[in-house]
């Protein structure tokens, strides 16, 4: 199986002195659905943002699809980012623009400035965007401003935006943490589908073991900036769970 993401001895020390990542070594193969577990502050968000350099890693190597992410600069970096889509906890849509325009912004990395300013004039871009909205079941919401959509709908618009990038990797930073359990499951189902039918590699941080078991093919747990568990979802029993989340933790089922 082809290796998609390779991290070697990755460190991140913030200007405040916080040592958020302490030597992460990780290899993720193409087509895996890798769940990141860990307490808030364990380094999950930092790790995800280092992968597309929204945060600059302090040292270490990141290879994604054979490309050296750490060494890339300017245009090269932007070309790498096109292939790595990201989904956020707060959806991060531009709220006073329509769903369609928000989805079209996924194409920015592929467009020149002039082209991007005239997005709505390009039939093929609009067609792809509408197709992606249809995939997440929101075609009839294309013209609606995203501020008027529910949380689950907004996250689906964000997924459509990610699809616009035609990515090989999807990074999802607690994509369902702001959603109710039923909506959370439906959003995860879309991510699962992209993973299975489009063969996209997904790295997704979560707090719910039930969702991890249902969708993940692999679980990596972080604690204090280090990997403390790496295995299949089935291997996480009560003992392992307490190791990751601390002695007082109880697993909460969401169903």
């Amino acid at each position: 199986m082809k290796s998609m993401i390779e991290l070697k001895n990755l460190h991140k020390v913030y200007a405040t002195g916080t040592h958020a990542l302490k030597g992460i070594d990780l290899e993720v193969n193409e087509g895996e659905f890798c769940i990141l577990l860990g307490l808030s502050g364990s380094g999950k968000s930092t790790l995800l943002r280092c992968l597309n350099r929204l945060i600059e890693p302090t040292s270490g190597d990141i290879i994604i699809d054979g490309m050296d992410v750490v060494a890339a600069k300017g245009k090269k970096l932007r070309h790498i980012r096109r292939k790595i889509a990201m989904i956020f906890q707060q959806f991060n849509l531009i709220k006073n623009l329509s769903s369609l325009t928000n989805v079209l912004t996924g194409k920015l990395g592929y467009s020149s400035l002039v082209h991007s300013l005239t997005f709505s004039q390009h039939k093929d871009d609009v067609k792809t965007a509408l197709e992606n909205l249809r995939r997440v079941g929101l075609k009839e919401f294309a013209e609606k401003k995203t501020r008027n959509l529910s949380g689950g709908q907004q996250q689906r618009v964000a997924i459509a935006r990610a699809l616009m990038q035609n990515p090989k990797v999807i990074l999802a930073d607690e994509p369902v943490a702001s959603l109710d359990p039923a909506t959370a499951d439906s959003v995860m189902r879309y991510l699962g589908e992209l993973n299975k039918s489009d063969k996209m590699t997904v790295i997704c941080s979560l707090h719910f073991l039930s969702l991890a078991r249902k969708y993940g093919t692999r679980v990596v747990a972080l604690k204090d900036g280090k990997i403390v568990f790496d295995g299949t979802p089935k291997e996480i029993d009560e003992k392992k769970f307490k190791e990751i989340y601390g002695e007082d933790a109880e697993e909460v089922e969401i169903r």
């Binding site: 597309n52 929204l54 932007r78 070309h79 790498i80 980012r81 096109r82 790595i84 889509a85 990201m86 956020f88 707060q90 959806f91 991060n92 849509l93 531009i94 709220k95 912004t105 996924g106 194409k107 920015l108 990395g109 592929y110 400035l113 991007s116 964000a158 935006r161 616009m164 990038q165």
Partner: peptide, 14 residues
């Protein structure tokens, strides 16, 4: 809101 800025940056935009 810095969120959308981060999201646009992540798409590979200039």
């Amino acid at each position: 809101d810095p969120g959308p800025v981060e999201a646009i940056k992540a798409t590979g935009a200039s």
